[in-house]
């Protein structure tokens, strides 16, 4: 039996000079290493982990503060606010828009956030929160009369510095990340998916319930454990099936039971009652390519 030292030593020798037992043990060692690496990887990463989604940038709190301060020092015209636009400034606005296009994506993203935060209703609410005793009318006046950007930034500062974190509004970090991911697609820094980027349990349940009505499973067929059909779907943005492929297609020609099961699954997707599929349209990127597994085993208690 070759020892571990012998195995390592054999690495420096040509293959032809190794004994059979060395080769066998070496091969077993390689398989063991590969298995351990696979197990560790599977254990470490969450199930729905996508390692490198494009266009997402991590921004630390310090970087955020710096960007905010840079933003504050800019001339006021740089940020536009729909509610605070004087009617006579349309020409000026057009010029600014042209300027904005030339600006860097990050700056545009910041503007986008600012414009989001500064929508009239939200601005009013923020002011009301800040000065609890103010009447709605005075709040309206304050938003109309004062500089909206200053108000928004002040409220943003307050939000970012506050520790309670119980606000029902989306956090600034999240908004910033969202905007940056939209505006700077070239960013290559890795980022984990947020909970909004996976299908929720209720969305999955709704999808399944929809499909259940259309799938006629192969009843009474022998060896149901061998009749699990995987379909590879490509869907359009409205959840209509553009392309569908039976993954184990070669088996269709040699196993008539599997062929019938696969055809039954394919008919499910072409059923008008199940087309388009019931998927959350806002999460298209997530289900654009989907594998549907039609599994009759649990249906018959196997």
């Amino acid at each position: 039996m070759a020892s571990l030292t012998d195995i390592f030593r054999s690495l420096s020798r040509p293959i032809g000079t190794r004994s059979l037992s060395e080769l066998v043990v070496f091969s077993a060692l390689c398989h063991l290493l590969a298995f351990l690496a696979t197990s560790l990887t599977a254990w470490f990463f969450p199930r729905d982990f996508i390692p490198f989604p494009a266009g997402v940038e991590i921004v630390t709190e310090q970087q955020l503060q710096q960007r905010l301060s840079q933003h504050r020092t800019r001339p006021k015209e740089e940020v536009t606010l729909e509610s605070a636009k004087p009617k006579e400034d349309k020409e000026k606005e057009e010029k600014e828009e042209k300027k904005e296009i030339k600006e860097s994506p990050k700056k545009t993203a910041l503007k986008k956030i600012a414009s989001k935060k500064a929508s009239p209703k939200k601005a009013i609410r923020k002011t009301t929160v800040k000065t609890n005793k103010k009447s709605p009318k005075s709040a309206d006046k304050s938003t109309d009369s004062s500089d909206p950007i200053e108000d928004i930034l002040a409220s943003l500062e307050e939000e970012t510095s506050s520790d309670d974190g119980q606000s029902s509004e989306p956090s600034f970090d999240a908004s910033l990340e969202e905007a940056l991911s939209e505006e700077s697609p070239d960013s290559s820094e890795p980022q984990f998916l947020s909970s909004e980027q996976i299908l929720t349990a209720s969305e999955l349940a709704a999808f399944r319930k929809h499909i259940f009505a259309c799938w006629s499973p192969p009843i009474g067929a022998p060896s149901l454990e061998n009749l699990v059909v995987d379909l590879d779907l490509t869907l359009d943005e409205n959840a209509y099936v553009i392309e569908v492929r039976v993954i184990d297609r070669s088996r269709m020609s040699r196993d008539p039971f599997f062929r019938s099961a696969a055809e039954s699954a394919l008919r499910t997707l072409s059923d008008s009652a199940c087309s388009p599929l019931k998927l959350p349209l806002g999460k298209y990127a997530l289900w654009e390519r989907t594998i549907l597994r039609f599994d009759p085993r649990r249906l018959f208690g196997l």
Partner: peptide, 23 residues
């Protein structure tokens, strides 16, 4: 070993299991 692990690091495709039907 890196080649072996490459598929694990690739983009995960959504898979949904259908285990109920209406005969």
């Amino acid at each position: 070993a890196a080649l072996l692990l490459l598929p694990l690091a690739s983009h995960a495709q959504l898979r949904i299991d259908i285990h109920q039907g209406t005969f």
